[in-house]
Nucleic acid binder design. Sequence first.
DNA 1: TAAAGCATGAAGTCTTGT
DNA 2: ACAAGACTTCATGCTTTA
Length: 596
Amino acid sequence: MDWNDSSKSSDSLQWIGEDEEEVNSNTVPFHSSSNFNTHEASTSAGPHSSLFSYFVGMGFSKNMVVKAIKENGEGNTNAILETLLTYSMIEKSPSECELIPYDTDSSESKMDDLDQLSDISSCLGDEETIEHLSDREKKFLQLMDMGFPIDDASSALEKCGPDTSIMELMDFISAAQIGKIHNPQLHPILDENKPGSSNFHTTPDKKRKKLFEAEERWQKKVDSWRRRQKESYKERKKSLLHEDEETVRVPKPMKGFGLPNMQMTVFNRKIPSEAIGPPFFYFENVALAPKGVWDTISRFLYDIQPEFVDSVYFCAAARKRGYIHNLPIQNRFPLQPIPPLTIQDTFPLSKKWWPSWDKRTKFNCLNTCTASAKLTERIKKALESWDGEPHPKTQKYILFECKKWNLVWVGKNRAAPLDPEEIEVLMGFPKHHTRGGGTSRTERFRSLGNSFQVDTVAFHLSVLKKMFPHGISVLSLFSGIGGAEVALHRLGIPLKNVVSVEISNVNRNILQSWWDQTNQKGNLIHVADVQKLSIDRLEELIKSLGGFDLIIGGSPCNNLTGSNRVSRDGLQGEQSILFYEYFRVLNDVKFLMGKV
DNA sequence: TAAAGCATGAAGTCTTGT
DNA sequence: ACAAGACTTCATGCTTTA
C-alpha cells in the first residue's frame, strides 16, 4: 500500500504526555472532521436539501434535523451535528421528548404551570435547560413525564410542598386517585397512626385492626395502581420508540459469524463500499447495552451489522460483547494453545473442594471489582453451621454470591475470588501482565475488567496475518492494557507502528512494560487523550508513519453496562460519549488517507 | 494518602408455572 | 397466552483501614 511505503523505521520510543499535547480549542465530538466539511451546504437547507438528507440519512428524525438546521444556520454543519447529538439522539429521541400528559383538560392552575414550563417541556432530556428550574418545576415535569394528570401533579405539589420526594408525591397522587386522600390518617405522608408511631399505640384494638386492614387494602390498591401506571408509561415509551424501528437484535446464542471448528453459518454480510478497508477497523463494546445503543453505533459505523460474541466459547468466562468491523470473516483461525473451556479444567485443584450442588462450569463476566475477604468468611461460617450438605436456602445464598463474584473453591468450605494472575490468564494475557510497576491490586482488577478477551478478539483479527506478513501499523484507541496489541502479537503479526491512545497512566505503563519485555521492533507512541488527537496531529502521524492498517478500540462502556447503578445514561453518558471520538478519528484517518 | 471494603438496583431477557 | 420468577451485568461513590 502506497501510504505505507513512506514509513520510517525508528526504534526510538516516543512519548506524548498529557501536558505536551497541543490543546485543541474545539473539543466537541465532531470537531473539524474533514469528512463533514465536505458536506457543508451553503445553500438551501430545507427539507429537500442535501444537508437535510445527509443528516436524515444518518438516522436523525426529520423534525429534529429541520430544527437543528434552523437553530444553527445552514453553514455550520458541525454545530448542527452537535445539536443533533446532544439533544435528540437515541434514548432522548425527539419522539420521546414530545411525550405529553394524557390529561389535557384545561384549568387555571394547569395553564399557569404549562405557561411557566412551556419552553422546557419540549425536551426533558436537556439538562442544561432543566438545570435552572426550581425544584418544584423539575418535580412537576417529572410527574408529567410519568403520565400523571396535570391537576393531580399540581395539587400534590401544592399540598405536600416542593421538598417532598417524587415517590411520596406519587403516593399522594395515588391515594387521591382512589379517593382515600379524604382520610389523611390513611396516607403515609400524613398518617400519624401508622404502626410504630406514638399515636398508633394509643388507638383501641378494634380501631387498630380496622386501620391495619384499611391500610393493607389501601396499600394493595396503591401498589396495583402504581404498577399499572408504570406499565402504561413503559408501553407508551415503547410504542414511541418503536417508531424508530430498532434493527439490531442481540442473537442468542452469541456465536458471532462463526466459531473455531464450527462450520461457517451462511451469512449475508454486506459492507458498504465507503466502509471497505484498508484501513480496517474494529470496534467493541458491551452487547447488553440499553436499547437503541447498538442501533446508533451501527448507524454511525456504516450500518454494518454488529457481530455479537460471548467469550464463553473461547475461555472459561462469559463476556458478551458486540463487535463492528470491516474485516473478512472467512479463514479465521483461533489462537494456540486453545485455553481450557471450563472452570474445572482451568483450575484442576478446585475439583477436590467443589460442592456437588454448585453446578457452575463457567464463570460469569469478569468485572472490575472483586469480592472482599469478609464475604468469603461469611460463606465459610454459613457452611460450617451444617454437618453435611447445607440447607437449600444456604446453598441458594452461597450460589448467588459465587455467581455474582465469580468465586472458586480453594479448600474445605472456602470460596475465594480469583487472583489478578488468574484473571490475566482467563482474559488471554500473559501471567503477571499487570503485575508490578506500581500497579495496585485494585487497579489490576479494574484494568483487567475493562479489557478485551484476547482469544476472542484474536480469532477475528487472525485474517490479518496473511495480509500483513511484514508487519502492521495500528491506531489503537482506548487501548487499556493492550488487548489488541497482545492479540496481534500472539497471532504472530509483527507490530510495525502502534499509536496507543489511553487516558490512564497506569494502563499506559502496563502496555509500555509489555512492549519492552516482548522485544518489539516497531514504534510505540502514546497519546493520552483521544479528544486531543486532532486532525492535525493525525495528519502528522500518518505522514511520519505512513498511514494505519488497522484502527481498533472498544469505547468506554461505563454508561452502558448493567452493572452501573448510578449513571447508566447510554451513549450520551459522560464516558460512553467517547464512542463518537472513535467515529470521528476513524473518519479523519480515512479522509487523510484518501479513502473517503 | 492510597488502597481496600462495602452498600447501592435497574433493565433487560429467558424460563417456568398456571 | 400470560404472569411471575430467575438470571446476568467491562460500576460508582462513600467509608474504613493501613
